[in-house]
């Protein structure tokens, strides 16, 4: 992202002789942020499409969906909601600390985020393994014997929470990469766009859960 060679900005002058800066694509903070926001839009379209499918079947199979929602573990789901909330806070604080020049504290907050994300995944793992243990997973004989709406509810449940979980795993990977960049001095208190974008990504992951949680766990 940074290019040491272009330290002097390129200036062009209009007819009146006013200077205008040529933006250097190698070091364009606003551009990097805009690019990442566009990426976030694609993610919103992906999850939005899944919610579209969810809504489509919720309309057709409301009783089945309500009954199936009853079977999910709200305590674990609720705990996970709070964990993500906390992790979004710690991610944000790490950015604040970095920009105030407190590199070590910033790293500490990233570590806290990573730990919280891992706890989220562990809880998710227990939730899933419980459901798989009682025979509820796509294509299982138990599930196939149930009503169509129930099959669709769990099909969507595993797809959407699975996709969300995948995003958390990727997020953890990105955070380790960010830590490495901080250690090697590539991210500094003035050149922080990578960490800022990581924080944006993490907020997106949180944002998706804000909708996933009530729609799956609380519609009964």
């Amino acid at each position: 992202m940074s290019n040491a060679s272009s330290t002097e900005p390129e200036i062009v002058y209009d007819k009146q002789g006013n200077p205008h800066e040529v933006i250097d694509f190698n070091n364009d903070y606003e551009g990097a942020k805009l690019g990442f926001w566009l990426f976030i839009f694609t993610e919103i379209m992906i999850f939005g499409a899944m919610f579209l499918v969810f809504g489509f079947y919720l309309f057709q199979f409301s009783p089945d969906f309500i009954a199936a929602s009853e079977g999910l573990n709200r305590v674990l789901g609720g705990t996970n909601t709070f964990i993500l909330l906390l992790s979004a806070l710690s991610m944000g604080l790490s950015l604040v600390k970095l920009r105030n020049g407190k590199i070590d504290e910033s790293k500490k907050f990233i570590w806290i985020t990573i730990i919280l994300a891992t706890i989220f995944l562990t809880i998710k793992y227990f939730e899933w393994s419980h459901e798989i243990h009682i025979g509820i997973y796509p294509g299982s004989p138990t599930l196939d014997a149930l009503s169509d709406g129930t099959k669709l509810f769990f099909g969507l449940y595993f797809t959407m929470t699975g996709l969300h979980g995948l995003h958390i795993i990727i997020g953890i990977g990105v955070m380790f990469w960010v830590l490495a960049l901080i250690n090697s001095g590539k991210i500094t208190s003035t050149n922080f766009v990578v960490l800022e974008n990581t924080a944006l990504y993490w907020d997106l992951v949180h944002l998706v859960w804000v909708f996933v949680f009530p729609l799956f766990y609380l519609i009964y």
Partner: peptide
């Protein structure tokens, strides 16, 4: 940017349908 992700996720769901049988586009599962 705005349209491709929709087909992307639909194709993924067809893949999941073939591998795990999630049922979203399969009439025998509703």
């Amino acid at each position: 940017i705005l349209a491709t992700p929709v087909v992307g996720i639909s194709l993924i769901m067809v893949i999941l349908e073939r591998t795990f049988g999630i049922g979203i586009f399969d009439p025998t599962k509703g």
